[in-house]
Amino acid sequence: MLRTLKTTAAGLLVAGVAMAGTVRAQAEDMTIGLAVANLQADFFNQIKQSVEKEGKEKGVTVVTVDAGGDSATQVSQIQDLITRNVDALIYIPAGATAASVPVEAAKKAKIPVVAVDRNPPDAPADTFIATDSVAAAKTLGDWVCKQSGGKGKLAEIQGQIGTTPQIDRDKGFSEAMKDCPGIEEVAKQASNQWMQDEGFNIAQAMIQRNPEISIFWGQADALALGAAQAAKVGNLGDVIVVGFDGDVAGLEAVKSGTLAATMTQQTQLMGRLALDSAIKLAKGEEVPAMQLQDATLTTKDNVEPFLKDHP
């Protein structure tokens, strides 16, 4: 009985894995590896979907791996992609600062690398695609200053400390605040995972300490949504909550008025661009080392088209 069970299970496993293999074999020659930092974050998931969609259209095989936010896992996964002989690698680094080890390993194996969102400082990839976060955060800050009439108490919920987007968004927003002396920063705290429940908990504690907060700036839409929820629970009347990323939940919230504004990153465009760059690099064509994208200030007035067709 046990033996039968074992044989059956083994058979199923072999069949299943083999089937996955045959599906693969039908695709075209070129294979692109996509190493995602963490698919639980909508921003990364959107890029992943865009890359995979574009890959299907172009007839390129995309092999996706997800590090779940752990850089050690990501190193192993990229090692596997290299073993698998991918023609190019799209690398969305996990962990605080982008690890250079995967880029170096890929270069050693002569595989071109496209870095998205974060770039290892000591071993930059062949091309780097990201949003110009400093400029975008400044745009958002200026809008907040105008919207609040230049007065208010600001609470800031940062992303994971030490990451490129956290540093850049901090920088852009505080530049805008310099020109807006009426807004006083009363609280500032970092999150670990850019997650909504963290945003909620952090904001709730902030409100506890300082019930007069009138502006919440969440460095990601998820963080801002958490803060908005906490403000609602805490019965804070007039409060401006702004986020960043323009992911689907964030845009819906802008539409309903939960969030006052967000900066919509062009995830679909970045995904397409990443794949195109990867294909070009694999064919030996030139690609610029930096490809920074704009983000669009999104408010209730202009949110509709973004919801229908994400840039």
């Binding site: 074992k6 894995v17 996955a20 693969r24 095989t61 996706t64 192993s76 992609l81 698998r84």
Partner: peptide
Amino acid sequence: RNGLNLVGVSPFFQMVVIGAVIALAVTF
């Protein structure tokens, strides 16, 4: 983990397979 990456199984499906294998292994 290595094999599933090499075969190119979707990351979400990988979690399912790994969980199932753990349960199977200990059951046997």
